[in-house]
Simulated scan of single mutants.
Amino acid sequence: MKPDRALKHGVLLFAVFLALVPSLFMIMTSLKSDEEYTYNKAGLPQALVLDHFDNVLFHSPFFAWMGNSIILVVGSVLLSTVVSCLGAYAIARMKFNGRGLLFSVSTALMAVPPVVMIVPLFVLYSQLGLISTYQGTIIIYAGLITPFSVYLLTTFFRTLPRELFEAARMDGAGDLLILRRIVIPLSLPALLTLVVVNALYVWNDLIIAIIFLQDDSKRTLMAGISVFQGRYDNQIPLTMAGMVIASAPMIILYIAFQKYFIQGLMAGSVK
């Protein structure tokens, strides 16, 4: 192997190691007893302790929290995907005044940090009575993930052959029929990429869930795990066990759609 190639591989392996360190620390800590974690925070566990996983699964409202997270993920991702498909198709394939400006504004919204919108949204939701409601929180999440979705789908829709649209219009197909019968089937990799990325965002979010879902019965998984430290006397291994279990569904989702995920990330990069 050439020296420059070996150097590149070494740098990549080091970067992978750095990326995996937090996950390895989380798994190792979840398998330690509270006493062992006190004097051995960074080392390997001397004996595997599974009591924390039992406490998380069967001595806390874990499955209720997971159900709330699933409701938010499914609702917000579904709403965002439908809106994004319609918006991206209009921007990519329909001609109207302000199309470029609309796309620019939508893309610019990707740079707006969600934290700056919390105060006005909270005031508005308080007046509308949408605090601690699924529908209100779903709308917030859908609004946060839609700009990226529109950008990715617009880029992908523009790469589809123009001849397909012209042939469909000659056969009398309208825009909605073209979108449903031609564009969406051909855009499956990009759509599945959006599902994975957006589901990860909503599933892992903490700040929106804590502020806008204040009812304990509607607490999400990440918000519920965050109370372990306060409710269970700062038991870090217990919290880490909850994080390991909470990560499993998203890891499974990514592995299941990994092939489409990689294809979707490359969508529109080569024309």
Rank of each mutant, 00 (worst) to 15 (best):
G242F: 12
L186R: 10
M66W: 06
M170Q: 07
V21A: 13
P22S: 08
M66P: 04
S33Y: 06
V195W: 01
S226E: 13
E35P: 00
Y134P: 01
H59W: 12
N68Y: 03
F96K: 08
P249W: 03
S80A: 15
F261G: 12
F58Q: 03
L13T: 11
E35F: 01
E35L: 12
L48F: 10
S60I: 03
Q135Y: 11
P237Y: 08
L238M: 08
F96N: 13
D54S: 11
L12K: 02
A142H: 12
W65Q: 05
R93L: 11
F103R: 14
M94G: 04
F103E: 15
G43K: 02
I207L: 15
A47I: 00
A167K: 00
L200C: 03
E166T: 04
G87H: 07
V116Q: 10
A199W: 05
F212P: 13
Q214Y: 05
Y125P: 13
F58K: 01
G75P: 07
L188A: 15
L206S: 05
S80D: 08
L179R: 06
L86G: 15
R231C: 00
T155P: 05
L12Q: 06
H59A: 12
Q229N: 08
S217L: 11
Y151P: 00
I178F: 11
F96W: 15
V197E: 09
S106P: 00
G264K: 02
F63M: 15
L13N: 02
A90Q: 13
A190G: 10
F228N: 09
I139H: 02
R169M: 04
D171S: 10
I140S: 05
F25C: 01
Y134W: 09
Y141Q: 04
P237N: 06
F165A: 01
L213K: 10
S226H: 08
A248E: 03
P45R: 04
V83F: 13
Y89A: 14
R181Q: 15
Q235P: 04
Y141D: 01
L206E: 10
F165I: 12
Q214A: 13
G224K: 03
Y37I: 03
E35N: 11
L79K: 06
I131D: 08
A111Y: 09
I252T: 10
L188Y: 08
L265E: 06
L188N: 01
T154K: 02
K95W: 07
Y254Q: 02
L109I: 05
P114V: 05
K95V: 13
L253T: 03
L121A: 11
N68A: 04
P120Y: 04
P249A: 09
L12P: 00
I251L: 15
F63G: 02
H52S: 14
L12E: 00
L86T: 08
V82T: 14
T38F: 10
L128D: 12
V270G: 13
F156R: 06
L130P: 07
F53D: 00
A209P: 03
L57H: 11
F53R: 13
D175W: 02
Q127T: 09
A209R: 03
Y125L: 09
F14P: 02
F228S: 06
